[in-house]
C-alpha cells in the first residue's frame, strides 16, 4: 500500500533522514518508534509532502508521490494526523470535518457524521462546539475524525499519545484498533512502547534518521537490546 525507498531529507543543511525505507501493507498497523528528534515526524512529513525528500521514492498504491503537493497526496487517499493536532479553533466540530471532507473512494470505508459520532461519542454530542473550546482529548479525537472524512485508505498518525492523559491514550488505542478492523491501514509514530505494543502489528525503529530495526511487534518485545539501545527504555 505505502512504500518508502531510500528517503533522504534535509532541513537547511541538516541531514535529517538517511536511507529510510519502510512499508505498510493493506489493513496493517505499523509503528515507527524512536526518540525525540530521531526523524519520526520528518518521515511522516516527507510522506505527505510537507517536507520534500531530496532523494528516494515514496509509492502509494502504485503511484509515485514524493514530488507531489500535499493536497494531491491527500486526494489519493492518504490521511495525515499531525503531532500538534492543529485543529481549526475558530471552526465548529462540523466545520472542521467539512474541511477534511472528500468524495467517497472505491474500496475503502466511507465516513460521514453519523459514523464519526459512533466512533467518537464525545464528538457526537458537540457538533456546534468551536474547536478552541474543546479539551485536549476531544481535540485529539477531532483531528483524527477530520482526517477520516477524507475517506483515507491509509492514515499517518504522528504521536497520538504524546502529551495527553493516560485515560485518553486508552481511547486512542481503542479507536486505532477499530479503524484497523474496518480495513484502514495505519502508520503510527510513537515513543511509547507500551502503547505501540497494544495496537501495532509490525515496528520500525528510527534513530538519527536511519532505520535501525525492523520486525514484528513480538520480535521487538523479545529484543531487549534493541529496546535499550534505540529507545532508551
Amino acid at each position: 500500500m505505502l512504500k518508502l525507498k531510500d528517503i533522504h531529507a534535509y532541513y537547511g543543511q541538516a541531514h535529517i533522514l538517511a536511507d529510510v525505507s519502510l512499508e505498510v501493507n493493506a489493513g496493517e498497523v505499523v509503528v515507527l518508534l524512536g526518540r525525540n528528534g530521531a526523524g519520526k515526524s520528518t518521515t511522516m512529513k516527507s510522506i505527505i509532502g510537507l517536507v520534500k525528500p531530496a532523494k528516494g521514492e515514496v509509492t502509494f498504491q502504485g503511484a509515485r508521490i514524493e514530488q507531489m503537493a500535499p493536497y494531491k497526496i491527500a486526494r489519493l487517499g492518504l490521511g495525515y494526523v499531525p503531532e500538534e493536532r492543529r485543529i481549526f479553533t475558530e471552526l465548529t466540530v462540523l466545520e472542521n470535518l467539512e474541511v477534511g471532507r472528500q468524495a467517497p473512494r472505491a474500496g475503502v470505508p466511507t465516513w460521514d457524521w453519523d459514523k464519526i459520532a459512533r466512533l467518537f461519542p464525545n464528538l457526537g454530542e458537540m457538533p456546534q462546539r468551536p474547536g478552541g473550546r474543546m479539551s485536549g482529548g476531544e481535540q485529539q479525537m477531532l483531528t483524527i475524525a477530520r482526517t477520516l472524512m477524507g475517506n483515507p485508505a491509509c492514515i499517518l498518525l504522528d504521536e497520538p499519545s504524546e502529551g495527553v492523559a493516560p485515560v485518553i491514550v486508552d481511547q486512542m488505542a481503542a479507536a486505532i484498533l477499530e479503524l484497523k478492523s474496518q480495513g484502514v491501514a495505519i502508520l503510527l509514530s510513537e515513543q511509547n512502547l507500551h502503547f505501540a505494543a497494544e495496537v501495532a502489528d509490525r515496528a520500525y525503529i528510527i534513530e538519527k534518521g536511519r532505520i535501525r530495526f525492523s520486525g514484528t511487534m513480538a520480535e521487538l518485545e523479545a529484543d531487549a537490546e534493541a529496546q535499550q539501545q534505540y529507545l532508551a527504555v
Partner: peptide, 11 residues
C-alpha cells in the same frame, strides 16, 4: 511545566 515532554524514556 511538563519538564520531560517530548523526551525519550531514559532522558
Amino acid at each position: 511545566d511538563e519538564p520531560t515532554a517530548g523526551m525519550a524514556p531514559k532522558e
